[in-house]
Design a protein around this nucleic acid. Structure first.
Length: 423
RNA sequence: GGAGAGGUGGCCGAGCGGCUGAAGGCAUCCGCCUGCUAAGCGGUUGUAGGGUUAACACUCUACCGAGGGUUCGAAUCCCUCCCUCUCCGCCA
């Protein structure tokens, strides 16, 4: 959520920011509504002021045993008016708040302008892409051959977009989670184990709702949502809190499965385990001082890259252009690994600075010192990392001519000393 | 799921329908006092929104879990919901 005062004071900035994302939003209509609401506020407050003063008069009169019925009669009418204007005001507030929740964050000044992912500039690369057999196999073929990936079992028990890992495949997945959490713990993140079902307020807090409702799994009976990322429960642990500024930045990491309906994605994208409805991910979240958040974004990015370096997987970092930014982000880097069997780069992490956009929605604040006014923190998060695509990359990049998969050295201890996955 | 108890300021805790933004205590900060420590004395300290101001300030409104209702007037009465605790039931 943007600062309403900013929208009032500098509508041009908001207009430009929103336009850079390719979003059409009627700022003028919004401001007009805002203005009308403020008029209405004044009107009701005048009436309420009258009510307060006259109530005291009535009380005084009654105490003296005098007759207050004339005033009471007047107040009856006044009360009716208050009820009316209050009702109107409430309606208007809801309308404005509804509109406001639909305004995306404004891209940071450093974000390059663009309309789609083709406009995302590459920031840097790490690692060498190794020699591979003439025709590298895609991960799903490798996995099925070795009996460690079972696509048909997934669709049998749940449907399209669900996969089953078996044997060493499942163990590899578990090993990856442990390695990632250990790395982030050493980087100073507090490890959390969090709920995978959250309430609506949490989903609004981080910005998934109301915009992305169609992409979320929802349990109607209990009005709970399956989390699309651990970002939601983790960021929301400090919803409505006032943090101690001296403790910032605070940082936490958590593993969770992620549930996404992926409404509207079809075709090649969905082949194998590249895009599935449920996947595992380790996430990092940071709560930081506003003036430090862009420094923090670079650190966060490095913290995510550290995992890929430990796994010896070559990657590139790209910066999302204005038109490709997610709803809540002010700036975002994606990290991609090379999947030779699929002949493409795969996004395995997304590191974003939300500035105070989420904090404002979730009311996460801090005080610089004891008596200071509470301010909104800046929140950031990044995947560290998304599992299935890492598995895809390991399968495809580490396949040997003899049809085995080499396990990255850092992972070997987590695999009980096993160095290869073979049939 | 059933029965009961409860949700008040940073914390604890009082609160007859009007004089309660809210007693009292603790804590905070400021000053006084005490040669240190402890104690004592006086004062101070919420959040959000509106108006106004260059700004300090000032002023109004709202907020006692949330939302409704009754009333001239609600922290206080009524209803609904949420949460916490205790007991019972059910279940990994």
């Amino acid at each position: 959520m943007l600062d309403r005062k900013l929208t009032r004071k500098d509508p041009e900035k908001v207009r430009k920011g929103v336009a850079a994302r390719g979003v059409d939003f009627d700022i003028d209509g919004f401001l007009e509504l805002d203005e009308r609401m403020r008029d209405l506020i004044q009107e009701t407050e005048k009436l309420k002021h009258r009510r307060n003063t006259v109530s005291k008069e009535i009380s005084a009169l009654k105490k003296q045993g005098a007759d207050a019925s004339a005033l009471m009669e007047e107040m009856k009418e006044n009360s009716g008016r208050i009820k009316e204007t209050d009702g109107e005001l409430k309606e208007m507030e809801e309308r404005i708040a509804g509109l406001e929740l639909g305004i995306p964050n404004i891209p940071h000044d450093s974000v390059p302008y663009g309309t789609c992912d083709a406009d995302n500039p590459e920031v840097r690369r790490w690692g060498e892409i190794p020699e591979l057999p003439e025709k590298p196999l895609p991960h799903d073929e490798i996995g099925e051959k070795l009996g460690i990936l079972d696509m048909s079992a997934g669709s049998l028990i749940s449907g399209r977009g669900f996969v089953v890992l078996r044997g060493d495949g499942a163990r590899l997945s578990r090993a990856l989670v442990s390695l990632m959490l250990d790395i982030h713990r050493e980087q100073g993140y507090e490890e959390l184990a969090i709920p995978y079902l959250v309430n609506r307020d949490s989903m609004i807090g981080t910005g998934q709702l109301p915009k992305m409702e169609e992409d979320m799994y929802h349990c109607e009976k209990d009005d709970l949502y399956l989390i699309p990322t651990a970002e939601v429960p983790v960021t929301n642990i400090y919803r409505d809190a006032v943090l101690d500024g001296e403790n910032l930045p605070m940082k936490a990491t958590a593993f969770s499965p992620c549930f996404r309906r992926e409404a509207g994605s079809y075709g090649q994208e969905t082949k194998g385990m590249i895009r599935v409805h449920q996947f595992d991910k380790v996430e990092m979240v940071r709560w930081t001082l506003p003036e430090k958040s862009y420094e923090d974004l670079e650190i966060l990015l490095d913290d995510a890259c550290a995992v890929l370096q430990a796994l010896e997987l070559p990657y590139r970092v790209i910066e999302l252009c204005s038109g490709d930014l997610s709803f809540s982000a002010a700036k975002c880097y994606d990290i991609e690994t090379w999947a030779p069997g699929s002949d493409r780069w795969l996004e395995v992490s997304s590191c974003s600075n939300f500035e105070d956009f989420q904090a404002r929605r979730a009311r996460i604040r801090f005080k610089r010192e004891k008596g200071a006014k509470p301010e909104f923190v800046h929140t950031l998060n990044g995947s560290g990392l998304a599992l299935p695509r890492i598995i895809v990359t390991i399968f495809e990049l580490n396949q040997t001519p003899t049809g085995k998969i080499r396990i990255p050295k850092a992972l070997v201890p987590y695999m009980g000393g096993q160095e290869y996955i073979e049939a």
